[in-house]
Design a protein around this nucleic acid. Structure first.
Length: 485
RNA sequence: GGCGGCAUGGCCAAGUGGUAAGGCAGAGGAUUGCAAAUCCUUUACCCCCAGUUCGAAUCUGGGUGCCGCCUCCA
């Protein structure tokens, strides 16, 4: 098998091969911790989580580094607004980030460096760039000179000479006046009164946005890494600048593969903080959308394409997950019942499913096609659940036959980070909700009414419970299950 | 204006040369006192035009529409 990934650098799909056999180094641009993460972040990090899980599943040793940007204008602005400090805002949002990622079953990165804790590496890198003539100082700021770096624009397809004229109209303000070229960007920003600052050879100040990633990648993973990840909106200027800085300093390629995920759209427009059309991860989870529904929703589209977010699409994913989850739960049960030693050899049909799953994932992480394999594997399991529920005596034998299938389904689902979710995932919530005892009693009353063929009364009880958000499910044999909807 | 991407059934979405995965919704059936839930079955010729080819959703050219980036942004 050969994993092929679309490399933004070449705009082509290329067979993936790490620099060191069997070992993959990955860096993912993290969040600026001034606020909570929204669905757009979730989409991005779920996609890369799946890449990571797939590499691990394929036998690679993976080192995954993701940074926190904890020095930034927006963090300072937020701190000023709430009368706290940069540290308070950052800590709070880092905690929230960790919790949100865990809720979505995204594996934590191996290392998560912070800009504020990487200042030595940042200052060293800036010094190195200046010594090589790639950067220049101006009134306490330090800028990167894009014209001095051959190859600037190679990732985003920009042409400096052309852009020069294009940007002329925007060159204004004191910062712009200090730049030699409109695309030059700050490596170090001299501090303004009242702002937190850090000492440096160029005076007190703080690092620019792009330099921190270059410094952290180098410190944590070396001069050249295998895969660099991020949202498509980071291609320019962030990743372009990162490449320029790192490669000007080391003379080596920063990353061999650049992968970018498509945006989450709302009503055809990009979901973003500035447009205000975002939905936070925790708001979604709090509204009753399960974490796995969110994962399924995200993975049903290819990671590079835009993904439209709507209540309808999410509801469709929720229903889809419900079915897949039922199969996974049964699969977990079957897998637990039988010892692994007594496993029959996987049938050729299963080998084919596995092959198709791998082929889909190898094709630039085609998770939508991979999910189709999961749904197909799930179907016989769902049918089995239905049969045994109806007291089909042959179902027991069928369960044995489906054991290998169950294990395969669980295994492949795990690659996508999908795991069975318990029915108790829903919170009881509201205080006026009926107690379990009330419900049980009502169901008993309804059973009595049914036995007496008093269906009007039985239906009345059912409707009454439904008003309280309790759904009844009559099972064969006169049993009635219920769940809060 | 520059760079990049997308257009597949009612909706979401795979498929990049041989007569269209999967999910949701819909329809029919099983089950049910009736429902709900569940299971089974089932529904498309791929934005338009012109080419290449024995053959194209899939390649080429043109058109139309939409989106992203060019300022902070996953």
């Amino acid at each position: 098998m050969t994993l092929r990934l679309t490399n933004s650098l070449t705009r082509r799909s290329e067979a993936f091969e790490p620099l060191q056999a069997g070992q993959v180094s990955m860096y993912c641009c993290g969040v600026t911790v001034y606020d909570l993460c929204h669905l757009g972040h979730a989409r991005s990090y779920i996609a890369w989580d799946v890449l990571r899980r797939y590499l691990l599943w394929s036998g690679y040793q993976v080192t995954f580094v993701q940074n926190y940007t904890d020095i930034d204008d927006k963090i300072l602005k937020r701190a000023a607004e709430e009368g706290s400090s940069m540290e308070v805002v950052s800590e709070r949002n880092i905690d929230a980030f960790v919790a949100d990622m865990a809720a979505l079953n995204i594996l934590p990165a191996d290392r998560m460096p912070r800009a504020t804790q990487s200042l030595d590496a940042i200052r060293d890198l800036i010094g190195e760039l200046q010594a090589k003539g790639a950067a220049y100082g101006a009134d306490g700021d330090v800028y990167f000179a894009v014209m001095k770096h051959a190859g600037y624009g190679k990732l985003s397809g920009r042409d400096l000479s052309e852009q020069q004229q294009n940007a002329d109209g925007r060159v204004s303000g004191s910062e712009e006046a200090r730049k030699h070229h409109p695309f030059d960007f700050a490596l170090w920003k001299g501090s303004k009164p009242g702002e937190p600052s850090f000492p440096s050879p160029w005076g007190p100040g703080r690092p620019g946005w792009h330099i921190e990633c270059s410094a952290m990648v180098r410190q944590e993973l070396g001069d050249t890494i295998d895969i660099h990840l991020g949202g498509a909106d980071l291609i320019f200027p962030h990743h372009e600048n990162e490449i320029a800085q790192s490669e000007a300093a080391t003379g080596k390629p920063l990353a061999r593969w650049w992968l970018h995920n498509g945006m989450v759209n709302v009503g055809g427009e990009k979901m973003s903080k500035s447009l205000g059309n975002f939905t936070t991860i925790r708001a979604l989870l709090a509204s009753g959308v399960s974490a796995m529904t969110l994962r399924l929703f995200v993975l049903q589209a290819h990671y590079r394409k835009p993904l439209d977010f709507s209540a309808e699409a999410l509801a469709a994913a929720a229903t889809g997950w419900k079915g897949l989850n039922a199969a996974l739960q049964l699969a977990a049960q079957l897998a637990a019942e039988q010892g692994a030693s007594s496993l029959p050899e996987p049938a050729s049909e299963l080998a084919d499913s596995r092959r198709r799953f791998v082929a889909a994932m190898d094709d630039d992480l085609n998770t939508a096609a991979a999910l189709a394999v999961l749904f197909e594997l799930a179907r016989p399991l769902r049918a089995l659940a239905n049969r045994s529920e109806r007291g089909d005596v042959a179902a027991a034998g069928a369960a044995l036959a489906l054991q290998a299938e169950a294990r395969l389904l669980l295994d492949l689902a795990g690659v996508l980070g999908l795991r069975p979710e318990g029915a108790s995932g829903q919170e009881g919530g509201a205080g006026d909700a009926a107690s379990d005892q009330d419900i049980t009693e009502a169901i008993a009353a309804r059973q009595a009414a049914k036995a007496a063929k008093n269906y009007a009364e039985a239906d009345r009880i059912r409707a009454n419970l439904q008003d309280k958000g309790i759904e009844l499910i009559d099972k064969p044999g006169g049993l009635t299950e219920w769940l809060r909807s």
